[in-house]
Design a protein around this nucleic acid. Structure first.
Lengths: 190, 190
DNA sequence: TGCAATCTATCTATCGATAGACAGACAAGG
DNA sequence: CCTTGTCTGTCTATCGATAGATAGATTGCA
């Protein structure tokens, strides 16, 4: 066996993730995916019985990796502005990388076509991000209420997702950069 | 003939618009569409030869109607805050109406699968919105440069699209309301 | 009669999913 | 050392559904 089961699962997920970030969940095809990793579509079904299984695994992994990276940021610096810089950079790099989108952002747009198990993972991604942002904000604004903190965090998350969506739509990463700058200028982002 | 050619075109476009706002461009099917308006799919092709034609017509109409409504707002009141209230209300009503999205917002997420003629219309929608927002802003902030105005307008547009996307993903219109409130609190929205 | 609109019927392509065969790895028993 | 049986991963082949699109017949109003 050239590759272990785990290797194959990883290869499939990596290819799938790229496809979803570029074309969405609906564009994800077992046949195309199989071709990319060099096996047949039936074999993909062996690793991920249904498309919903694959989508949910994808989103779960995406959230886990994101959470790990964000935790690292929090542990590295106490500076809220630095953390936010790094955060906006994550979404920027998706655009810079072949005009891709946040996996869960693009999935949110396809919400009604998603199997329930995928939806659940999309929800968790949003909650994870908002939770992290609230932690960062609490360092910069210690006096506000917990509710205001949550709302502000949600506003930042939404604004950044929107900046990515619109910039992607215009195929112009400069729009993302200028929009983030405007968010900073108003104080939405510390 | 129960309906004129124009009537039929309108009926198809209305049904198509609802479908796209709920499920995206990819989910738009000539057969389903035909069933909804009571004709056969071949007849839909008579009115809109290709799917790209239909998509482009949809986006163009969407932009035209939006522009007309926004022009009316500008003519009705000089108050920037009132105009912005009405503006955010547009995006809110899409969510309130069966968790739908802005037609061009959801299409932006599907960008890579769109025929070029549809993309062009999506671009025009963004430009139209940013132009209007810049006009409103210029009433409230007369001293800033034209470039700052454009960037601020783009930031507002992006932030609102994002709020809609995220709230839709969470199936919770309350998230939209709280996020808009937070945008106001920071001064992003006048 | 002639044109406009819709129809029936069909094509090719692709989708997710499944059944069943097969090859190689590996452990157990002789 | 060799054989036997089991398990794993991939394969071929195919299913039913659906997609966009087209050709050509048909209907009905002016």
């Amino acid at each position: 066996m050239a590759r272990t089961k785990t290797d194959m699962r990883e290869a499939v997920m990596t290819a799938a993730r790229t496809t979803v970030q570029s074309h969405g969940y609906n564009a994800l095809s077992f046949r195309e995916l199989a071709k990319e990793v060099g096996i047949k579509s039936a074999s993909v079904h062996y690793h991920f019985p249904t498309k919903g299984d694959l989508g949910a695994a994808l989103a779960r992994r995406y959230t886990e990796e994101g959470a790990a990276y964000l935790a690292e940021l929090l542990a590295t610096s106490e500076d809220a502005t630095w953390c936010m810089d790094k955060y906006t950079e994550i979404f920027r790099s998706a655009l810079a990388n072949d005009n891709r989108m946040c996996l869960c952002g693009i999935m949110s747009a396809e919400l009604d076509d998603l199997p329930v198990e995928v939806r659940a993972e999309v929800d968790k991604f949003a909650a994870m991000n908002v939770g992290w942002l609230a932690q960062v904000l609490s360092r910069a604004r210690s006096s506000v209420s917990e509710q205001d903190l949550q709302e502000h965090a949600m506003a930042i998350f939404s604004a950044i997702e929107g900046a990515q969506l619109v910039a992607r739509g215009c195929r112009d990463i400069g729009i993302y950069d200028r929009t983030i700058r405007a968010y900073r200028a108003t104080g939405l982002i510390p």
